[in-house]
């Protein structure tokens, strides 16, 4: 019996190999290797100015790396794949004097989409965004939230295989945020690879299959959330007690991580000893030893003295 023929795994949506990009004397991205598997949702996190946007622009071939190789949707170091990529930049840009329909048709045409297909997609997306009646209004007449949704529609209207969203949720009210979030998940379910950068750690935790964190141009995290958390261990304690923050601060060995109002996150070398210290002093309503949140990990890495730059570095999510 002949051995079964195994289907070759699909090529990754994005593969960056030892990419470095400098601007003058500033190194924006240093020796970055990253693999984004096809069909996943990949979250890019990092403080402002850490290199997220430069990485995204490098993937889009808006920037050419000084060294290293960029492969996107199977195309190496060319813009050939750009028609199959949808892009929502961090700072939105729409022609204010054009109508919504013309702007969307123009962006679709630039992606090489036939006008009839574009017209159909535009209608569908406007309906999905609840903006059908605004189709023939000028962009300048839209509210900020509406303009954000139109900008998102412009990124997805050409049915991209790879969707790159730079801060897609910034400035959105909860209703519009939910509309965009649902649309991203729908695209993801349909097989679109999604890369998005965000400062909303909760959103990254819930939406992303993989998290990549860049800090000062260096990759500091890359993997699934579970892998990342596992590498940090269960060193976080979530406490809710009547004594509150003041009491917790007064206890020896406590390192307060985050005050959540009704509860506090902290670290302590011996959780049992901490519980013994707390019990006679206050009423403890909740005491949980847990993994650090992504927010906590982010803060640990990106705090000014950056002690965790040398923290456990995860390897690429897909690799």
């Amino acid at each position: 019996m002949p051995p079964p023929i195994l289907a070759a795994p699909p090529p990754p949506a994005v593969r960056l190999t030892n990419v470095t990009k400098t601007f003058g004397t500033h190194t924006a991205v240093r020796d970055l290797t990253l693999t984004v598997p096809t069909g996943c949702t990949y979250g890019f996190i990092g403080p402002n100015g850490s290199g997220k946007t430069t990485t995204i622009r490098t993937i889009l071939h808006i920037f050419h790396p000084d060294s290293g190789e960029v492969e996107v949707l199977g195309e190496r170091s060319t813009r050939a794949a750009n028609n199959r990529i949808g892009y929502l930049p961090e700072e939105r840009g729409l022609y204010k004097k054009m109508t919504v329909r013309r702007v969307l048709a123009y962006y679709a045409a630039l992606k090489g989409m036939a006008s009839a297909d574009a017209a159909r997609e535009i209608e569908q997306w406007l309906a999905k965004m609840g903006l059908t009646e605004w189709a023939d209004k000028k962009v300048e007449a839209l509210s900020k939230g509406m303009a954000q949704k139109i900008q998102f529609t412009a990124a997805v209207v050409a049915r991209p295989e790879l969707l790159i969203l730079d801060e897609p949720f910034s400035g959105l009210d909860p209703v519009n945020l939910e509309v965009i979030r649902a649309a991203i998940l729908e695209l993801r379910a349909a097989g679109t690879t999604v890369i998005f950068s965000t400062h909303d750690m909760a959103m990254a935790e819930t939406m992303c299959d993989f998290i990549f964190m860049i800090y000062r141009g260096n990759k500091v995290l890359d993997g699934t959330l579970a892998d990342i958390q596992r590498s940090y261990g269960e060193d976080t304690i979530r406490v809710s007690c009547d004594g509150g923050v003041e009491l917790l601060r007064s206890l020896p060995g406590v390192e307060l991580v985050r005050d959540l109002g009704q509860s506090q996150e902290l670290r302590h070398p011996d959780p049992q000893a901490l519980l013994r210290e707390l019990a006679p002093r206050t009423t403890v309503r909740h005491f949980e030893v847990t993994k650090p949140s992504l927010h906590d990990i982010f803060i640990r890495i990106a705090k000014p003295d950056a002690p965790e730059l040398a923290a456990p570095k995860m390897t690429g999510g897909g690799s």
């Binding site: 808006i62 840009g93 729409l94 204010k96």
Partner: peptide, 15 residues
């Protein structure tokens, strides 16, 4: 277009 950040959107599609 540069000030309104339209250029970056366009450059994702054209050289």
């Amino acid at each position: 277009e540069k000030m309104q950040k339209i250029s970056e959107v366009l450059l994702a599609s054209v050289s």
